[in-house]
């Protein structure tokens, strides 16, 4: 009993110190100069641009990873092929590589002196220090979120339901949209939520490939840094509070949907008893 209490106390203390306190500080600092100043900081054109840029990046990276994730899980769960394990390992690569290195690799590939730099500049395509580079970097870093969430699910669920659908007269597309996809939907939902949160909050990789031109290639997380470094502390915290709010919203959304569909989630998640 004593051990249990101590462990719980340690866990709670840790959570307060590392999660709750920073959150409180972010919001209190953001509001320190009053609510008017807080909103003024957010409607600053440069900050508005950063919000827009962040949304654009997420709007491309998340759907891309959704599609990649579904394709990868389909491959891995439905087929047995040479190199399957290599593929599973590769999917985890972005988790094990520092985002800064990921950004750097991109510079080495697409930068002016990079592998494809000459060809790109000949064709007037700018990737590094521009939006395409930031999207690529974000997509790379957030790649595992959807795939990792649904691959084990798809493997566990097997092919039985698809075969049943075949005997019930369904064609390939009907099976995919009526059976394969829906039975993965909660995994997909969690994957997309996590992927989105990370895509909007990514710093390292984007920081390397962005030119950090305030108002042009600054995302929200980069804007926090820019503002902080220019001693605009209150504005930095105001922008940071947006990101923190996004994190909270993600949690609330997840919890709310889980609660609303608790019967179905329970039903879908429970292993087939035999």
């Amino acid at each position: 009993m004593a051990v249990r209490r101590v462990l719980i106390a340690v866990a709670i203390a840790f959570m307060i110190l590392f999660l709750v306190m920073p959150l409180i500080i972010v919001f209190s600092e953001a509001m320190s100069a009053g609510i008017g100043t807080y909103f003024n900081a957010l409607v600053d054109p440069n900050v508005a641009d950063a919000i827009y840029l962040t949304l654009v990046i997420a709007a491309v990276a998340v759907p891309a990873n959704l599609v990649f994730g579904i394709m990868a899980s389909w491959c891995i769960a439905k087929f047995d092929f040479a190199g399957r394990n290599v593929l599973i390992t590769l999917i985890d690569l972005p988790f094990s590589i520092s985002p800064v290195i990921a950004g750097l690799l991109e510079v080495l590939l697409f930068g002016l002196n990079g592998l494809f730099g000459g060809w790109l500049s000949d064709h007037n395509i700018q990737i590094i220090f521009a939006l395409p580079g930031m999207i690529l970097a974000t997509t790379f870093v957030t790649f595992p979120f959807v795939a990792r969430e649904i691959i084990p699910l798809a493997q566990e669920q097997g092919n039985d339901e698809e075969e049943a659908a075949v005997t019930l007269g369904a064609g390939g597309l009907q099976i995919f949209f009526r059976v394969s996809l829906p039975k993965l939907r909660w995994g997909l939902f969690y994957g997309v939520l996590l992927c989105n949160a990370r895509a909007m909050g990514e710093f390292g990789a984007v920081s390397v490939v962005s030119g950090k031109i305030f108002g042009q290639t600054d995302t929200l997380s980069l804007a926090v840094e820019s503002l902080y470094e220019s001693y605009d502390i209150q504005a930095a915290f105001a922008v940071a509070s947006l990101l923190a709010g996004l994190a909270l919203l993600t949690l609330v959304l997840k919890a709310g949907l889980e609660w609303r569909h608790r019967d179905e989630i329970h039903a879908v998640r429970r292993k087939r008893s035999s």
Partner: peptide
């Protein structure tokens, strides 16, 4: 019509 050993009902 086919009835599978583990039923293969659509869980969702």
């Amino acid at each position: 019509g086919f009835v599978f050993q583990h039923y293969a009902l659509f869980r969702h």
